[in-house]
Design a protein around this nucleic acid. Structure first.
Lengths: 215, 215
DNA sequence: CCGGTTGGATAGCTAGCATATCCAGCGTGC
DNA sequence: GCACGCTGGATATGCTAGCTATCCAACCGG
């Protein structure tokens, strides 16, 4: 398959494919002569993955590159590889050096502890969650451990019973990370959209009738 | 309070505040003379809201403006106002005109129907979810109604029992939308981060020991 | 042997989000 | 009562991300 066909198959313009090649997101095709390379099914897959992470996941190119580098680093064990890819999916957050931040972070650690979760002490998600709590508080919303528990409970079961089962740990390592990344990003989106639908519905239930009568 | 103090209080630089004023995100202060305006607590609140939606929610300025306009449109009922604000939070998705898209969309409609959710037929979330399903399928992940149900179930209870209760429907209308928007965006983030923590934990459980022994 | 494609290099573009600069008019501290 | 610094308002400029366009020489296929 030549670059023009790769472009047609995936709908990604040729200049953009060249850009991804330059950026190292897409491995070069098999160079068959100075001005001709051949691309295969793996390239189509990879290109679709890139677009999904970009468009649905809104990940920056640099994060996508990090994910891809994790996949291609053969020296890593499967768990380490998943971890690297996973961390690349987290937005960077700088811890603030304030008391309110420390308090929020302590609450996060306590939540993880009481659920018995195995999460690295340095996991970026800890700081990210702490930061979100601080932001909520600054906006006047109190957040306590009991507020967080239902979220952890709801999501814990979901991940255990439905997300992990989709990952083919027995297949080639590349397939496993890919499925993991897809699961994290795309099902993250699913969860988010479904939640917004549920909110609309609850809001309608609580308010639409009242509005209709009151106005 | 003068603009310099507003800037110090919120940590937002003066030129940025001026920019938000120009963009209509922040109402002008009370003009006290040709070269002096006074800002109050409402401005501090608004500025924090803007920053939270921008930084945590990653909403574009235009979406934030739409939310704010919904708040300020006094002619709308509370439900309508929440709806407008809510829709502004959804990323725009163009429906594809393909069979696979139509099938995905039908599945979304069925999910909403079987849960008895009150969601507008034109709600952007329907298209958004359909698009995500199409993307998942193109990446080789089959998605069926039974795959989606657990997500709807997990999130339905969460929204009903924990999110809606945080909205003060009896207070001033501005407070209600604000709480609703904050809930949608910030607790959306909470859910996302918690899910990623749960994934890390499950992955560790399933793989870390195996890796340790195998390598 | 020639029109069209390719790889590779470099330059340019657009959107989004600010920053910077400039200016004249205040107004407060002295 | 006056100088210095802040203010509002207008305009210009900057910066990053993610492309997109142009150019060129090598090449292939008919």
């Amino acid at each position: 398959m030549r670059i023009s066909q790769l472009s047609e198959t995936t709908g990604v313009p040729i200049p953009t494919i060249k850009y991804y090649l330059r950026e190292g997101l897409l491995p070069p095709g098999e160079q068959v002569s100075a001005t001709r390379s051949v691309y295969g099914a793996a390239h189509v897959r990879r290109l679709r993955l890139i677009r999904a992470l970009l468009e649905v996941g809104k990940l920056p190119i640099s994060a996508i590159r990090a994910v891809i580098e994790a996949v291609e680093d053969e020296t890593k064990g499967v768990h380490e590889m998943l971890g690297t890819a996973h961390y690349a999916l987290s937005p960077k957050t700088e811890p603030e050096d304030t008391d309110e931040w420390a308090a929020a972070r302590a609450m996060v650690d306590e939540l993880i502890r009481e659920r018995g979760w195995r999460v690295e002490p340095a996991a970026p998600g800890r700081d990210e969650l702490a930061q979100t709590i601080v932001t909520l508080r600054r906006l006047g919303q109190e957040v306590t451990l009991p507020d967080l528990r239902p979220y952890a409970a709801a999501v814990g079961g979901l991940v255990r019973d439905h997300e992990m089962s989709r990952i083919p740990f027995d297949g080639p390592r590349e397939t496993a990370v890919e499925a993991h990344v897809i699961g994290t990003v795309l099902y993250g989106r699913v969860l988010d959209v479904v939640r917004r639908l549920a909110e609309e519905s609850e809001s309608a239930r609580l308010l639409a009738d009242a509005d209709g009568l009151a106005e």
